[in-house]
């Protein structure tokens, strides 16, 4: 029996995480912490390993080593379905809306794993557009609506750690704002969130802390309060 989380210990503790796609070694010792109720971002240039890090935490990467402790329990070696049942959920980079399912079926697909998830009414209050589109084919929704659906369906499950991979990618500014408000609301409700973002103005408005990922490692940690001061450094990391 793994020891329970000590008070003050992070909800998620990633240590020396290595990950592979087949023979290709992509993560070379990622380490970071997320405390309960925090929003942290993973920033980094294209191909840095942000998506792969989320996949490795979720158990969706076939080969991974190191340590991922969630609520005091080691996740390395567990299949994704067991990790999901512990209360972690992902919004994948490609959104993962199922074309052969209606919006309704997409929304209801993930099983409830813990009590305390959003009700349907709460979800429609958060994303009113979805209510009108329930009978549509999932992939007939606009990009923004698909993103909302991808977030909405994991809010139902009662997961308390959300892994969001570039939820604003390719979306119009008003949609980005709506998703920003949603994440703020989720933070207010005590969700813990790991957010991968390219748009760091967006990231800065939400996060407590930023981890800079480069070549499969976390190379820097920047508290949100110090972001302005570190802009030069950050620009260099991100190559912008």
């Amino acid at each position: 029996m793994p020891e329970a989380a000590r008070p003050g210990s992070p909800l998620l503790a990633v240590r020396d995480l290595n990950g592979w796609y087949g023979e290709s070694h992509v993560l070379h010792g990622v380490s970071f912490d997320v405390a309960e109720g925090e929003v942290v971002t993973l920033l980094g240039r294209n191909g840095a390993g942000k998506t792969t890090t989320l996949l490795a935490v979720m158990g969706m990467l076939a080969r991974r080593t190191g340590s991922v402790i969630f609520a005091g329990k080691e996740l390395i070696g567990l299949p994704a379905r067991a990790i999901a049942r512990m209360g972690i959920a992902i919004v994948p980079e490609e959104r993962g809306i199922f074309a052969s399912l209606s919006v309704e079926e997409n929304l209801m697909l993930p099983p409830v794993v813990r009590p305390g998830g959003f009700s349907r009414e709460q979800i429609f209050e958060l994303f009113p557009n979805l209510r009108e589109r329930l009978a549509s084919q999932g992939t007939k929704l606009s990009g923004g609506e698909q993103q909302m659906l991808a977030i909405a369906r994991i809010l139902r499950t009662g997961a308390r750690l959300l892994l969001l991979d570039e939820p604003t990618e390719g979306l119009a500014p008003v949609i980005v704002q709506q998703i920003g408000r949603t994440i703020e609301r989720l933070k207010g409700e005590g969700f813990t969130i790991v957010l991968v973002e390219q748009n760091f103005r967006f990231a800065a408005s939400l996060a407590d802390r930023h981890y800079v990922v480069d070549q499969g490692r976390v190379v820097d940690t920047i508290p949100n309060a110090d972001l302005e001061r570190n802009m030069g450094k950050l620009h260099a990391y991100l190559g912008v």
């Binding site: 969706m60 379905r81 992902i90 993962g96 199922f98 052969s100 697909l109």
Partner: peptide, 24 residues
């Protein structure tokens, strides 16, 4: 049916269905 929706989803993207906690 819901079982059918699971089946159709797993046909499209088994990894993601697994990541929702389903025993694919």
């Amino acid at each position: 049916t819901r079982l059918g929706a699971l089946l159709r989803a797993a046909t499209e993207n088994p990894a993601l269905v697994g990541a929702f906690g389903i025993n694919v």
